[in-house]
Each structure stands twice: as C-alpha cells, then as structure tokens.
C-alpha cells in the first residue's frame, strides 16, 4: 500500500488536478457465493477488462479497486473477493467486517449455487451491519441455454429478502457495471439519508474530505496507469 501511495505522490505532480481523479469516499464491497460461480470473473470484468476504454473510472494497478462516480461524487470501490468453498465458510467471516456492499453471486446454470444463497444471506446479514447493501447477481447470463434457475424465481427470492437483483455475465460484461454502480448508489443514498454512520469503523465507508481547489490535493495517480 505504502509503495503504491508513494508512487502516487511521485507522479502526482504530473497529474492534472481536475476533479475526475479525486474521490471522496471509499466503499468496501465483498463478493460472496459458491465456488465457481464466477465471483473473480465479475471482479475482473468490473475492474480490469472491459472498462479500459473508460479510463477515468478504471484503476489498473491497485488491487481490486475502481473509481466510479455517483451523483457527482467520486467513489473508490474496494472489492474483496472471497473464497467460496464450503469448508472455508466458517473461517471467512472476517471478510464481511466493514463491508458496505455485498454482491451475492450464484450461477444460473447450477441450481446448487442458487440453493446455497440462503445460507450466504444468513451469513451476510449476521456479519455485516444492517445498512450493508446486498445485491444478488445471477452470473453467466450468456449461457442462457444451460439455464437452471429462472430469472423469475431468483427475482422473487430477491424481493422476498429485500435484495436488489440482476442477471449478469462476466464474460460479456452485460449488467456487470450496473450491479456495482447500483450498489454504490444505494450505499451513497444511505449515507445521504444518514442511515450509514461514516464514523463507525464497521460502516465500510471512508469519507475523504476532498480539497479540490488546492494544488497539492492531486488525485492518486494510479488511475493514470491505465493503458489508454
């Protein structure tokens, strides 16, 4: 971390100091779900691949992060991938700590992954704070022919549990961006509503009061490392 930051500083002077590169919040996400549902692929899709063209919003270097914009605010998303194996379930609880958003993923071609959702949900509810936004993602929507779980069924499950839901494809990138962005919007909303206490360490949100007018307040240069 320190090295990265030092790098930021060293290149900060070359950066334009305009708004897009600064951010005022950090949201922590976790991605949960059974093994093989494509959690990592979703993450990679979101942070790395498809969005190279969208330079201001992408961070290539820093681990699992991307900067997005919600309601004119730059928000840095920090996304933690988690191990989905059943045997690690008991020990992976520390992932949840301080997560502002949880992306619960299942594989629409494998019913078992859908069936496990309730236990994932229980964990999430138990281990995060009430304001944590949970988003259900049915991954591999590109494999519609092998579909094992219907959209309606999942939608119903989501509605019953008050989750947001979307079917996405890490492969094509369909709806991936939306899922992450919608979650961020919801979190930002709860911040605005005051439901989320920024000062609580467990909130999963860090507020970074930006000082855009000042020249020294150069944004992290990591966004600069985008290939475009």
């Amino acid at each position: 971390m320190a090295a990265l930051h030092l790098f930021h500083i060293s290149t900060a002077t070359f950066k334009m100091t305009s708004g897009p590169y600064n951010y005022s919040y950090i949201f922590k996400y976790i991605i949960i779900g059974d093994m093989g549902v494509g959690k990592s692929c979703l993450l990679h899709q979101f942070t790395d691949k498809k969005f190279m063209a969208d330079c201001p919003h992408t961070i290539g270097v820093e681990f699992g992060t991307r900067i997005i914009e919600v309601a004119g605010q730059k928000i840095k998303l920090q996304i933690w991938d988690t191990a989905g194996q059943e045997r690690f379930r008991a020990v992976t609880r520390s992932y949840y700590r301080g997560a502002a958003g949880a992306l619960m993923v299942y594989d629409i071609t494998r019913r078992s992954t859908y069936n496990h959702l309730s236990s994932w949900l229980t964990d999430t509810r138990n281990l995060t704070n009430p304001s944590t936004v949970i988003f259900l993602i049915g991954n591999k929507s590109d494999l519609d022919g092998q579909r094992d779980v219907t959209y309606e069924e999942a939608k119903q499950f989501a509605d019953e549990n008050g989750l947001m839901f979307v079917e996405a494809s890490a492969k094509t990138g369909q709806n991936v961006e939306e899922a992450f962005l919608e979650t961020a919007k919801k979190i930002y909303q709860s911040i605005q509503d005051g439901r989320l206490d920024l000062n609580a360490a467990e909130s999963g949100v860090q507020h970074k009061p930006a000082s855009p007018g000042r020249p020294l307040a150069a944004p992290p240069a990591a966004r600069d490392n985008c290939a475009c």
Partner: peptide, 20 residues
C-alpha cells in the same frame, strides 16, 4: 487500513487461513 486496501484484504485472508 485493515478493513480496506490490499494489505487489509490479504491480511484477512491470512487470518482466515490461520483460523482454518
């Protein structure tokens, strides 16, 4: 720091590994 960032993430993984 522990809750965000790469270091925090990996450290969490290490904690998981140890408790496993």
């Amino acid at each position: 720091r522990l809750m965000t960032g790469e270091g925090g993430y990996y450290f969490t993984n290490l904690c998981c590994a140890v408790s496993f």
